[in-house]
């Protein structure tokens, strides 16, 4: 079994093709058009993490104090600016949490919890990957995450973003078996979609690479003002697209990036622009997942997928 799971595949095999035209209509609560959720990655990168053969945590030998301290900026300074901007625009966060942060910085957890923010799991630390783990080891991480978040916040985890986006082929099965309702690790759609899992009704929640400040700033290297521009453009198009059926826009954040003094104002302005639109549902990952199931969209999508496959003879 392990051998089969480790074999190279040409396709993830986790979701089915369903083209955009003629999909079942998604209806969001209050007849809102576009669900907008903001997912701050509140992370802890370790000073002296162990190596994983697939990925070294730091480019330089431990301690990589420049990169370590750059991330640490988010937990000393950046998170407060990010939170203030979100408060001003009326957004709650859905926190993509390295759960060890509950132990390291309970003050940050409390500030999020006091605002009714959701916590979902982003693994234990962002410097511990699931590469080369066996399935039981990965299950232990999932249990740890559930217990840690429950003990510190009273919340039951609903969502998951794998630590540093590391995954195994069995990951979705064991997340769903543990009670996770949505995964953020796949970027194939602007609407939630069913995921193939052995048990449960896991969905893929639209997260975003393109709107993610870590991609925008560290990979694409855009200016802060351009980031605000692309957030607004992405929003304008999705808002129009959602005339026909509910859609989802996610803005994933990292307080060490967006919370820098030279970046926060243009971001604050962009999310205020979004919240100024009447058809926006300012929500969280958990609430979107619940509405998706409660409105019958999950079942309708499953049916539509089956019908599409029958019509075209595909799988």
């Amino acid at each position: 079994m392990a051998g089969e799971d480790q074999a190279l595949r040409s396709d993830l095999g986790l979701y089915d093709y369903l083209p955009w035209p003629n999909r079942p209509k998604i209806t969001w609560p209050g007849n809102k058009k576009l669900a907008v959720w903001i997912a701050p990655n509140i992370e802890f990168y370790e000073y002296d993490p162990p190596d994983n053969p697939t990925r070294k945590p730091w480019a330089r030998p431990n301690p990589d104090v420049l990169q370590y301290s750059h991330r640490d900026y988010g937990n000393r300074a950046g998170w407060q600016r990010m939170m203030a901007a979100m408060d001003a625009a009326g957004f709650r966060g859905s926190v993509s949490l390295n759960v060890a942060l509950c132990e390291h910085h309970p003050e940050i957890i409390k500030a999020c919890a006091d605002r009714g923010w959701e916590f979902f799991s982003h693994g234990i630390y962002n410097t511990r990957y699931v590469y080369n783990l066996d399935i039981e080891q990965e299950r232990a991480i999932i249990r740890d995450a559930f217990e840690t978040v429950r003990n510190h916040t009273g919340q039951e985890l609903a969502g998951w973003l794998s630590p540093a986006l590391s995954n195994n082929f069995w990951t979705m099965d064991i997340l769903s078996e543990a009670g996770i309702q949505y995964t953020c690790d796949m970027f194939h759609d602007d609407q939630p979609m069913p995921v193939h899992v052995k048990t449960g009704k896991l969905i893929s929640m639209p997260y975003s690479l393109e709107m993610n400040d870590v991609i925008v700033y560290n990979t694409q290297k855009v200016t802060p003002r351009h980031y605000a521009e692309i957030i607004k453009r992405q929003f304008d198009q999705l808002y129009k697209d959602a005339d026909d059926s509910g859609m989802v826009m996610c803005i994933p954040l990292h307080p060490y990036l967006v919370g820098q003094p030279h970046r926060i104002e243009s971001f604050a302005e962009a999310i205020s622009y979004i919240s100024g639109h009447e058809g926006v549902w300012q929500t969280t990952g958990r609430e979107i997942a619940q509405a998706y199931h409660a409105s019958g969209a999950y079942d309708a999508m499953k049916k539509a997928i089956a019908a599409h496959q029958a019509e075209w003879g595909t799988r």
């Binding site: 002296d48 994983n52 697939t54 640490d72 132990e103 390291h104 234990i124 783990l133 080891q137 991480i141």
Partner: peptide
């Protein structure tokens, strides 16, 4: 390739920083 279970041990998982250089503030 496999990882030892020690990969899931987090010896500096505690209040504050995971080193002694400075305190969280």
């Amino acid at each position: 390739m496999s990882m030892p279970d020690t990969y899931l041990h987090y010896s500096a998982r505690r209040y504050g920083m995971d080193h002694e250089r400075y305190e969280w503030s």
